[in-house]
């Protein structure tokens, strides 16, 4: 007996059907530059969905990116968006946030941008508890420039500048973020779309420095150089090797080559933000002479 035929569904007329996220994307710039099976697009979808669900005034949401594949995200979001310099989006975003504290400022960038060249800004913004949400796409490699080793490359993984396999210890981003003072830290892979979206929503609503790390497949460089297969193979790997452990001690979150990846929400705690601490301290010391800082200039 042959399988029953699936009735052909009527296809929507593409020209008339608007993209479901049209209001959030700069459609005139689509198609984007990312490779097929790249995980950045999925992360952008999760972010856009989170924004839609929150139903905020999007005129008051700014996005700041650095340089790299993920650095291009700012350019595709229909928000006030800044594509800045390599490593500096957190510092730039600090200026935007303090310039106008009414704005919700999101930093969307890659592991190399935020953790290598931008590492200093990352740790200090976390220390200050600057009110920013950082979405850090981690694909273990510098992909835009063709696959160089990153401070997140798991040991023995290959890259064009690590032709004998990486021997350096990589950063464990959640542990770094927690140690430096971040108030919200989560990690998901590009496979965990729903959970990722929820985490981004939580992070956006959390006052202070929130970090969502997203492990994404880079089939073209990370996958190819390390013979890990196609994008689909990488997603299958996440499916089979992701372990959800909410609240896991961040010291246990090192990522090893071809080993299971622990994901989940690890940190959700309270601490005064930079501006809360600033306003509190100066009010105490200066009294009436000080008008708490908050509104627009």
């Amino acid at each position: 007996m042959s399988a029953p035929k699936v009735a052909e569904r009527p296809r929507p007329k593409m020209k008339e059907e608007p993209h479901p996220m049209e209001s959030l994307l700069r459609m005139e710039r689509i198609p984007h530059i990312w490779c097929p099976t790249c995980g950045i697009g999925t992360t952008v979808t999760a972010f856009a969905t989170a924004l839609e669900k929150l139903d905020w005034d999007l005129d008051k949401v700014c996005i700041v990116s650095g340089i790299g594949c993920t650095g291009r995200v700012a350019g595709y979001m229909r928000l006030d968006s800044f594509h800045t310099t390599h490593g500096r989006p957190i510092a730039f975003a600090t200026g935007v946030k303090l310039g106008n504290p009414e704005l919700k400022v999101v930093v969307f960038s890659g592991d190399g941008d935020l953790i290598a060249i931008g590492g200093n800004h990352f740790i200090h913004a976390a220390r200050r508890n600057m009110d920013l949400t950082v979405i850090c796409v981690n694909n273990f490699i510098y992909a835009m420039t063709g696959g160089q080793v990153a401070p997140t490359t798991p040991p023995t993984g290959y890259a064009t500048t690590s032709p004998y396999g990486n021997f350096e210890k990589p950063f464990n981003i959640p542990h770094l973020a927690e140690s430096c003072g971040a108030v919200y830290v989560a990690r998901w892979t590009a496979l965990h779309v729903r959970r990722l979206t929820n985490s981004i929503m939580e992070a956006l609503q959390k006052p202070g420095f929130s970090v969502v790390e997203v492990i994404t497949p880079c089939a073209n460089y990370w996958g190819r150089i390390n013979r890990l297969g196609t994008g689909l193979d990488l997603m299958r790997f996440y499916h089979e090797n992701s372990i959800i452990k909410h609240g896991e001690d961040t010291r246990n979150l090192d990522i090893e080559f071809k080993k299971p990846i622990v994901v989940g929400k690890f940190i959700d705690r309270e601490r005064p933000t930079f501006l809360q601490a600033y306003n509190q301290r100066l009010s105490e010391i200066l009294g009436d002479k000080f008008k708490p800082y908050g509104g627009k200039a």
Partner: peptide
């Protein structure tokens, strides 16, 4: 009613200044 921040380095300082300038 101005804000002062001592940044972590000069790279961040000027980056923050540009960001703040774009808020008016």
């Amino acid at each position: 009613e101005a804000i002062f921040i001592q940044m972590e380095d000069e790279l961040g300082s000027l980056a923050a200044v540009i960001g703040a300038a774009w808020t008016g």
